[in-house]
Each structure stands twice: as structure tokens, then as C-alpha cells.
Amino acid sequence: MLDDFVVRAALAGVGVALAAAPLGCFVVWRRMAYFGDATSHAALLGVALALSLDLPIFGGVLVVALAMALIVSGLTGRTVSTDALLGVLAHGALAIGLVAVSVLPNQRVDLSAYLFGEILAVTKTDLAVIWGGAAVSVALLVWRWQALLSATLSPDLATASGVNPKREQLILTLALALTVAVALKVVGALLIAAMLIIPAAAARPFSRSPETMAIMAAILATVSALAGLAASFVFDTPTGPSIVTVAAILFALSAGLAPLLRR
């Protein structure tokens, strides 16, 4: 079954959807959209690093994404406004990554594969990495769920209840870097943030609790991955962007239905 590239693509898409959606809920709740941007854009720099040092792409991306996530995470803890600074980091990382990949001496790199993903080229090894990474990321969130929610609501309140908000932030940072690293192959550096935020935002009107929102987001993300994959075959469109397009359509539908669902 895994010999069929379509099956591998579908499994890869679902794996990324399941990891990204619950994490994306936290990104939305904590208003950290730029956090996702900066970290996922840094993935390209990780690709350049991996290629130049002849390391596995996954490892290079994980290291650089983690470094970027830690930097951003440290900055957002400050009291000064960091909006512009986060923007600089997000776009700077992308630009520097593009330059770095293009000046690599020994090879012509297919840039679009890293920018938009190449889900149809997912190998069995990729699949193992994606599902392994996704499982660790989801396990981190499940394990720390209550504490993460407390720290999201109010760092001071969390502290008063014996939860260390800095530690929870670090957990999220780790999960984010891991998710970025596994999602690169599937949706590409430019659209990872979309897979984090759009399903979560689309799930909001149907949710009365954080848990249902995370589950709804995971369902919507999975539907987006499968429908996007199918659409890319039917319409002969690039797969990564097709997946995000379906997610965006689901969001539009959900936002349209939201007024009807209120109370």
C-alpha cells in the first residue's frame, strides 16, 4: 500500500495536519502568528545549512527552526512591543534563506520544492519522520495541555498555581520547531504557518471548549489535506497550495456559518 505515491502523500498530509492543527490553536490563542511565520521561514535557512554541511534536511531544519523559535520566544517575553522586530525576523529569515540556498556551490536546488513542498515525492523514510515528529509534537501538547492552557490565559495566574510559564513556552517552542521540520516536505516553508493558523481559526465557531477546538481543527486540517490532494490531481495544481486553499475555503464557510451558530 505504501508503494503507491498517492497513499504516501495522503498519509504525509494527514500526519502534518494532525500535528499542526492543535499546535495552531495555541498559536492563535496566544496571538503568535508571527512566531509561526518566523520559525517556518527559518526552515529555509535550515535547508541551506543541511545542504552545505551534507546533513539530513530534517536535522538542519529542526536545528535552525528551534534556534529561531527560541530567539522569538525570548523576544516576546519582553515588555516592549516586538511586532516590528518579529516582522523583521520572519521576513529576514526567509530572504537570507533564499540567498543562502542559491549561493550553495555544488548543486542547483529546486527552490519551489522547499517553498511550497513536494508532497508527491514523499518517501517511506519521510513518512516515518513525519509521523514520528508529529507523534512527539502531539504527545508534548497532550502531556502539558492543562499547564499550557493556564500559561496561555495568564502567566501570573499560572505562576500562582505552581505552573512555570517559561517552561510551558519552551514546550510550545519545541513542538513548533518539530512541526515546522516535519511539515516542510509537505506544504513548504511559505505555507506551514497557514496550516497552523487556518484550521484553528476555522474551528473556532464550532467550539465551546479548548479541547473541542483542537479536535475540530485537526479534523478540518485532515479534510483540507485530503481534499487538497484530490483537487491537485483533478485540476493539476500544486499540491501544497491546493491544501491551504481548501483550508481557506473551509475557514470562509465557517466564518459565514458563525453568526448562525451563536448561542
Binding site: 496561555t152 495566574l157 471548549s209
Partner: peptide, 21 residues
């Protein structure tokens, strides 16, 4: 606390809030 800004994107009942952490 002084004030608590719960983001509108976070669905949470009073009961759920009191059960954290």
C-alpha cells in the same frame, strides 16, 4: 489578577477555567 484578557479565539467555559491547571 488586575485584569485578564482572554483572547476571543479561545473558547472556555467558567467551569473549564476553574479546572485549570
Amino acid at each position: 489578577p488586575q485584569k485578564l484578557q482572554i483572547d476571543a479565539t479561545l473558547p472556555l467555559t467558567v467551569q473549564g477555567f476553574l479546572n485549570l491547571p
